[in-house]
């Protein structure tokens, strides 16, 4: 269905886009300005996803917006972003980026999505669009990703209004059957999927007996959710022949291999930057090459989906 040719050792081609390695900056992490996104690319990322951008600007929630639990982060940023029109300024600066630039977007209604799709169609810097229907801490967004009907309808609306750019749908794990949501996204016209967004969660401050995050609910990311993310990738790729970006708790090359073996075409990295810094991209690339050499694999394609063998 989709061209998935792997060039060279770590190169991956997904949706006709060439990623020099399968390590992509996840949405919501650092992706608010052009200079920072460029720096992530110079740091060795194979692709970047921007912060989720809406039609209008949003301030997000007041602090505290993040809790580090050691085994993962709970964040409740509340989708802060300058709005699509102002973000175009940043995107203009990103023309000619050496890796694919994926624009993450969200919309509170299909009308908003229609408007956004038309604007984005004209943006040369954007290689693909990742539709965020899964942010667990903003009401009106997380609900979309939990309903197969809404997912299908939103994706179709975007598809009808977006020309020449593939659509990736980022799925929430906060559902009982992620495969049915994945199927709805594909039926709506999704070209690829990202699994998973953060796991809806909360933290209580025992000194005050109140929720710690100003936004009350947050999204859990990092090592704690890796097994959940792996299970989701595995379940989806067991049923559907669609490229899946694995996302959730990737911190080492071992984690990347697990995701690829579960069926992912590439991975997205976010929270690991808090612990390992921006070096994480280059370091994992080196670790990955070493692993492939050690095991005698000639490409990541040989590893992909191995866990599905019967």
């Amino acid at each position: 269905m989709i061209n998935r040719k792997y060039n060279g050792f770590l190169d991956v081609e997904i949706l006709n886009l060439k990623f020099p390695n399968p390590l992509i900056l996840a949405a919501g992490i650092l992706g608010l300005t052009a200079p920072l996104l460029k720096r992530v690319v110079y740091s060795g990322a194979g692709g970047v996803v921007t912060k989720s951008i809406g039609l209008k600007s949003r301030e997000g929630y007041p602090n505290p917006t993040i809790v580090d639990l050691g085994y993962g982060l709970v964040n409740s940023m509340g989708l802060p972003n300058p709005g699509l029109k102002m973000f175009i300024e940043e995107l203009e600066e990103l023309k000619g980026l050496k890796v694919p630039l994926i624009l993450s977007i969200y919309a509170f209604s299909e009308e908003e999505l229609m408007t956004m799709g038309k604007i984005i169609s004209k943006l040369k810097a954007v290689s693909a669009v990742e539709l965020n229907v899964s942010c667990p801490h903003v009401g009106g967004i997380s609900e979309i990703g939990k309903s197969p009907e809404l997912v299908k309808s939103y994706v179709k609306t975007l598809k009808d209004n977006l020309s020449n750019k593939p659509i990736i749908v980022k799925l929430t794990p906060n559902v009982s059957d992620i495969t049915s949501i994945a199927m709805a996204a594909v039926n709506g016209g999704a070209d690829a999927l990202t699994a998973i967004n953060t796991v809806k969660s909360m933290v209580i401050d025992i000194e005050t007996g109140k929720p710690l995050l100003a936004g009350v609910f947050g999204g859990l990311s990092g090592p704690a959710i890796k097994p959940i993310a792996l299970r989701c990738v595995y379940e989806i790729t067991e049923t559907l022949d669609v490229p899946v970006f694995g996302c959730g708790g990737v911190e080492t090359a071992r984690d990347v291999i697990e995701f690829i073996m579960a069926g992912a075409v590439a991975v997205q990295i976010g929270s690991a930057i808090a612990r390992r810094g921006l070096r994480v991209f280059r370091e994992i690339s080196i670790e990955l090459k070493r692993f492939l050499e050690l095991k005698g694999f000639k490409s990541l394609e040989e590893v992909r989906g191995l866990a599905h063998r019967r």
């Binding site: 919501g28 992490i29 650092l30 992706g31 608010l32 300005t33 200079p35 920072l36 460029k38 720096r39 912060k51 997000g60 602090n63 917006t65 993040i66 580090d68 982060l73 964040n75 940023m77 802060p80 976010g270 929270s271 930057i273 808090a274 810094g277």
Partner: peptide, 20 residues
């Protein structure tokens, strides 16, 4: 500033994060 640990990007100045 939001996260203080170098991931949210709120405190960017040029290509740098003021926090980290």
């Amino acid at each position: 500033m939001r996260c203080g640990i170098g991931i949210c990007g709120s405190c960017c100045l040029g290509p740098y994060r003021v926090c980290s």
